[in-house]
Amino acid sequence: MVKPFHKFKQGGNYILLDINNGGVHAVDGQIYHALDRDDFAASPEYAELIDAGIFDSEDDYAEYADMNVNAPLKAMCLHVSHDCNLKCGYCFAESIIEHTVMSPETAKKAIDFLIRGSAGREHLEADFFGGEPLLAWETVTQTVEYAKAQGAKHGKKFRFTITTNGLLLDDEKTAYINEEMSNVVLSLDGRREVNDRLRKCKNGKGSYDIILPKFRELVDSRKKTGFTDYFIRGTFTGYNLDFADDVLAIANEGFRYISIEPVTVSTELPFAIKKEHIPRIKSEYDRLSDIMSDNNGGWSFFHFCADLEHGPCILKRLRGCGAGNEYIAVTPDGNIFPCHRYAGIDEWKMGNINIEASPVNKTIKEYFSKTHIYAKEKCRECWARFYCGGGCNAEFFIFEGDANKPSEVFCELMKKRTECAIALAVRKALG
């Protein structure tokens, strides 16, 4: 019998997840340990759970997997710059840095392409990305104004986001971002010495002291506008496996919304995350979870925010993201790729928005639309499948050569973060 549950102990609680219906329960030690037995289904403790209405669902969601195949476009990542004013040691975009920026004309064609491909969808999203998008500021502002005008004409509502290293932020750009961008992602790795070890300026000096005051100004002034969402987004590497201290360092600088992600680079690099790091990183997530449970500072860690009562809809839970299907990336020369991580990989080029007759490669679109949890052998019986959605296709392609083959590091860390998120919600609920 395939176990319909996942159980773990954290924060002093015995936690039981009913995989197929999303139920989360705190049980006593006797029930918890009875479920370890090979014949757990014959135990009185299991019968008690059944009587309580737990485990009343099968995994019968596969019918929803095909409802989002060849979906209309919803979101676009605009690589407005393939140039950067930092030289970060781990940057995955380094291989596509060509010192080019997207022209406003190409960006406007991309917006037209998104509107045309969105069919009946009303809500569309454009993300300004790079390289460093502030190096193409004229393109950013012209694109926002154009998208708003075209959106009004075609009955579409645009939501704009931007990711920046902050180096070029000034009063004018900060005000515009806070006025127009629903969310802004600000890149910072945590403690000064950690940030400056890999996030260096072109002159080899660290960037921390330049960008921190600019980020603080942006976030402080953002409170006065209609948009409040932002993320301080960092990367941890093999150099700082004590990254909970980096989350704390960011929180202590007064920032509320924090995300720090494991680096994804070749394992040949000295700061790569490797399989042997998994136990150490898991214990660090535990430490961060303990810090969070005592956290009265009003800050949050992205991966530990689980909405157990609502959460994403079933269509979203079956996929890690919409890349290549309802989400695409466009590079400065107008080439279309499944997402920003695939940008520049010629075999995954889906078309070009400058060529009127260039159709989107439907074979690629269909391929990505079918990379759901039922297509990935490793995901089908994984307890975390409805929280993870099958993970990041680009990461699996880069490390395993196949979008449908999740990597061990990704899976182990994803499952640990999910446990921490659930455990924190349980702790909060039980008081």
């Binding site: 009913d18 999303g22 139920g23 705190a26 049980v27 309580a52 669902s57 993201c321 609920a429």
Partner: peptide, 23 residues
């Protein structure tokens, strides 16, 4: 979040968010 005590040994933190819905 409101918890429900199914029995003295089982406290439900959330019931069936996945069913209800039917990164």
């Amino acid at each position: 979040m409101k918890t429900t005590e199914k029995t003295t040994r089982i406290k439900t933190i959330c019931g069936s968010s996945l069913r209800d819905s039917v990164s």
